[in-house]
C-alpha cells in the first residue's frame, strides 16, 4: 500500500484508558485509511471512539497498540517536539467549542499557526486575509471571540485550521454548538474548501446533517468499525 495514497492510516490500533481500575477500550484493533481529498465523517454513539481516532490521527494522543501513520510517518515513533511541529504544519483542528484564543482578534486567531511557522509578515497577512475572505469573515478581523456569534467563531476556527494548507483538517463535532443555519453555512464552507482546494476533512459527529453531507461515513461502535460506506 502506497503511503502517498493515504493521508492517514491506522493499523490494528487500540486505545485503552483506565477510569480508576476499570479498563475502557475506546478503540479496539481498528484499521482505517483516509485518502487525500476525502470529506469523511466518523459517526457512532458516545464512547464509540470517534474523538479518540481524531486525536490519534492529529498526533494529540497515542495508541496503546498498533500504528498511526500521517503522510507516511509513524506517529508512535516521534518525540514531543516533532509531534508538536507535525500538528502545527500538517494538521488543522476544528473543535466543538470553537476554542479560539480569547485574547486574540479574529485576524490574530487565524494568523496564529502561520506565526508559529514563522511565515513572513506580508505573506502571512495575504494568506490570512484570503482565507478570512473565503470563510466570509473579512469584515470581522478586529473582533475578539467574545464579540462573535458561535457560527462566526467556528468560521474563524475553520480559517485557522486551513490557513496553513494542512494535509488534513480534523473537525470534532463542528456543528454541535451552532444552530441549523450556522451549521449549514459551516458545512457549505467546508465542502467548498474541499471541492475547490482539495482540503481533506475528517469529522466526528452525531449530527445527521453532517452525516448526510459527508461523502464517506464511517460508523463506529465500541471502538470497532461497524460500517464504512466507501470501504475498499
Amino acid at each position: 500500500m502506497m503511503d502517498a495514497e493515504y493521508i492517514a492510516r491506522l493499523d490494528r490500533v487500540s486505545r485503552v484508558y483506565y477510569q480508576g481500575r476499570v479498563e475502557v477500550r475506546a478503540v479496539d484493533n481498528l484499521d482505517l485509511l483516509i485518502r487525500p481529498g476525502e470529506f469523511s465523517a466518523l459517526s457512532g454513539p458516545s464512547g464509540s471512539g470517534k474523538t479518540t481516532i481524531l486525536n490519534m490521527i492529529g498526533a494529540l494522543d497515542m495508541p496503546t497498540s498498533g500504528t498511526v501513520y500521517l503522510e507516511g510517518r509513524d506517529l508512535t515513533r516521534l518525540g514531543r517536539g516533532e509531534l508538536s511541529r507535525l500538528r502545527r504544519d500538517r494538521v488543522g483542528f476544528v473543535f466543538q467549542a470553537y476554542n479560539l484564543v480569547p485574547v486574540l482578534t479574529a485576524y490574530e486567531n487565524a494568523e496564529f499557526v502561520l506565526a508559529l511557522q514563522n511565515v513572513p509578515v506580508q505573506e502571512r497577512r495575504d494568506r490570512v486575509m484570503a482565507v478570512l475572505e473565503e470563510v466570509g469573515m473579512a469584515g470581522y478581523v478586529n473582533r475578539r471571540p467574545d464579540e462573535l456569534s458561535g457560527g462566526q467563531q467556528q468560521r474563524i476556527a475553520i480559517a485557522r485550521a486551513v490557513v496553513s494548507d494542512p494535509a488534513i483538517v480534523l473537525a470534532d463535532e463542528p456543528t454541535a454548538n451552532v444552530d441549523l443555519e450556522a451549521a449549514n453555512t459551516i458545512l457549505d464552507l467546508m465542502e467548498d474548501l474541499n471541492a475547490r482546494k482539495g482540503v481533506t476533512f475528517l469529522f466526528s459527529t452525531h449530527d445527521r446533517l453532517v452525516m448526510d453531507r459527508a461523502r464517506r461515513l464511517v460508523k463506529l461502535r465500541d471502538g470497532r468499525l461497524e460500517d464504512d460506506n466507501q470501504a475498499a
Binding site: 508538536s84 500538528r87 484564543v101 496564529f112 511557522q117
Partner: peptide, 12 residues
C-alpha cells in the same frame, strides 16, 4: 482549555 488548543495547533 485555551492552552490545550494552543498546544494542539503546534504551540510547544
Amino acid at each position: 482549555p485555551v492552552f490545550g488548543v494552543m498546544k494542539a495547533v503546534g504551540f510547544s
